[in-house]
Simulated assay, not measured.
Amino acid sequence: MITKKAMLASAVLAMLGGWSLTQAAGQGATAAPVPAPRFGAAPDPAIAAETLPPLPALDPAVKARADALFADADAVGETRALYVLRDGKPIYERYGDGFGPDSKLISWSMAKSITAVLTGFLVADGQLSLDGPAPVAAWQRSGDPRAAIALRDLLHMTSGIEHVEVGDPVWKGDTVDMLFGPGAQDMAGFAEAKPAVARPGELFNYSSATSVILADILADTLTPSPSPEARREAVRDFIQGRLIEPLGMTSLTPEFDAKGTMIGGSIMHATARDYAKFGEFLRNHGVVDGQRLLPESWMRFMLSPSPADAGYGGHIWLNRQRPRGADIALWPDRGPNDLFACIGHQGQYIIVSPSQRVTIVRLGITSDDQFPALRRHLADLQEAL
């Protein structure tokens, strides 16, 4: 039986990224699929094609592998945007029908890496400590084991907190409860109330709730006010001054809950071009136009493996072998060792290959069973470059 809560959660998931009630509930043909919306400005495809700038001639093998991400939709799902840069300059740009360079598309978990960079700015400013106790008021009571959790543990997804990213069925997970259920009004309060089940650094547990805790810490650091509006404005101003303006990411739009906490684990919006600017920022290790904005030490931290999962760094995926039984994230058997990526639900990718001087952005709608084919296509494209 599909409960009212399940229907609400899956319907909202559908609205945000193209899920259907059928997919979320696992009920086969008993529920009609919900069509995915078009986020942001979605120009007529003919107009979009006319306004795309001319690009240099591309190796036919590279173009064929890029085009295959659109042509092979039955295997990889719907590709809405594919944008490829070499040495910071576009060499391939294409959009699905109804989308264009001005279309703002959802980040899903690519937002986690943006949250990590924002945290890095505050660490560099001396306002937060990577290895000091995470400043979460709810954890500071005497005898609370969560008081030992450091920012490093949260960023490595090794806090030891009992978070369930995706339940079985999906609506029994903490992510749905936090985003669309009882935790939606105060997502950080929901996430921070969970108990510890392991010591910090001991257990890898990928969790969007963890990223919301980091976003709560950011807001608390930037303003002492509990006012939701003050928290939103403080974080927006910080992002504007430290990320949007220096990188030119003018379309970046973070979302907030009712308490004014940024939904730093899953819900931001931006154009493919602006996601690529973030990827280039990471590829250049925090340097923009010759100016260092993020310390090299922070980039080294983000790209260092989590002690409990070599395939994950500081809120970013690494092209390393993961522990036995863990889901495949990238393609360590094929790609360069220095390759890393921001990865989001349903196949959102910012792929950075420093040794190739390449950044790839792919945005779209891919179902779980299509992910192996999507990874193969993306690995083929990266390899051809």
Rank of each mutant, 00 (worst) to 15 (best):
T253E: 14
T253D: 15
Q370A: 11
P354C: 04
G279K: 12
L247A: 13
G313M: 02
D237E: 00
I343T: 13
A234D: 12
F340N: 01
L303P: 04
I360Q: 07
N284W: 14
R283Y: 04
Q346P: 05
Q240V: 09
F281M: 01
R324W: 00
S251I: 10
A276M: 10
V358D: 03
D309P: 03
P323Q: 08
S297Y: 07
G265F: 12
Y275D: 07
V235G: 11
P254R: 13
G313H: 02
D327F: 01
C342I: 05
T366C: 07
M249I: 11
D338S: 01
H345F: 12
G286I: 08
L363M: 13
I328A: 10
I360V: 10
L330Q: 03
K277C: 06
F301A: 07
L247K: 11
W298G: 14
D368W: 04
C342Q: 11
L339V: 03
P354M: 09
W331E: 07
L243E: 07
P354I: 00
L293Q: 00
D257A: 08
W317A: 05
G290D: 15
R300F: 01
L339T: 04
A326Y: 12
D369Q: 13
I360L: 09
T271N: 13
M302H: 10
P332R: 04
V288E: 12
I316D: 06
A341M: 09
A234G: 10
E233W: 05
F281I: 00
N319E: 05
L243V: 12
S266Q: 15
R324E: 10
P254M: 15
Q291V: 06
D237F: 03
F256H: 10
Q321V: 00
F256M: 13
S251Q: 10
Q240E: 03
I244W: 11
R231L: 05
L252R: 14
D274H: 07
H345Y: 05
P228S: 07
E229K: 15
G265D: 08
D237T: 11
R324P: 05
D289F: 03
N337H: 07
P228H: 01
G248H: 07
R292S: 03
D333V: 08
R324G: 03
R322C: 04
E229D: 11
I328F: 02
I365W: 09
P246R: 13
K259I: 08
C342G: 14
M299G: 12
L282I: 02
V235P: 06
R357D: 02
R334L: 07
S353N: 04
I365Q: 15
T250Y: 15
R334C: 04
H345M: 08
W331K: 06
G286P: 08
K277E: 14
R322K: 10
I365P: 15
M249L: 13
D369L: 11
